[in-house]
């Protein structure tokens, strides 16, 4: 079904518009006569300063990543120690600790964003051990004490 009115609009849009040969010259002259706003340089400097501030702000926001947090436990008889907590979905396989060579200590570094996290060490896959150097909270739900770490 044809729409005569729509066809006429399309034809009008496609019709070439004649431009006088001296159009560019006359447009340039008209722009040259137009007074520029006073203080334009000030606006330019302001815009540049705002841009610099915004860039700095965005860069800082982007660079504020997780902070490495070190977890340590002294477990001389342990064969393996893992770290489980709110930061690794309580997955006992995800964050194994490494034994510090020549000592009885085990260590892991975990990048953490700001927040309050609950965690515990799992020694030899069967013994839940709270971090005695950190805040602790009893866990009456599951029967073990958990440790707390806060990251700013």
């Amino acid at each position: 079904m044809r729409d005569d009115w729509l066809d006429s609009v399309v034809r009008e849009l496609k019709r070439p518009t004649p431009v006088r040969p001296d159009f560019d010259r006359r447009l340039g002259a008209a722009l040259a006569r137009t007074p520029r706003p006073r203080g334009g340089w000030l606006l330019g400097v302001g815009a540049m300063a705002a841009g610099a501030l915004l860039t700095t702000f965005l860069w800082k926001g982007r660079s504020r990543g997780p902070a490495p947090v070190e977890f340590l436990i002294d477990a001389p008889a342990a064969r393996a120690v893992t770290l489980v907590g709110d930061f690794n979905d309580w997955d006992r396989r995800r964050t194994p600790l490494e034994r510090v060579i020549g000592t009885s200590r085990w260590r892991a570094r975990v990048p953490l964003h700001g927040g309050l996290y609950r965690y515990v060490f799992l020694v030899d896959g069967e013994r839940w051990v709270a971090d005695s150097t950190q805040l602790t909270a009893p866990d009456p739900d599951f029967g073990t004490t958990v440790s707390l770490v806060t990251v700013r």
């Binding site: 489980v84 907590g85 709110d86 979905d89 309580w90 997955d91 006992r92 609950r118 839940w128 739900d141 599951f142 029967g143 073990t144 958990v146």
Partner: peptide, 11 residues
């Protein structure tokens, strides 16, 4: 996380 903790502890 509380639920996952319970799972990890075999509850």
């Amino acid at each position: 996380q509380k639920a996952l903790e319970g799972r990890a502890k075999g509850a």
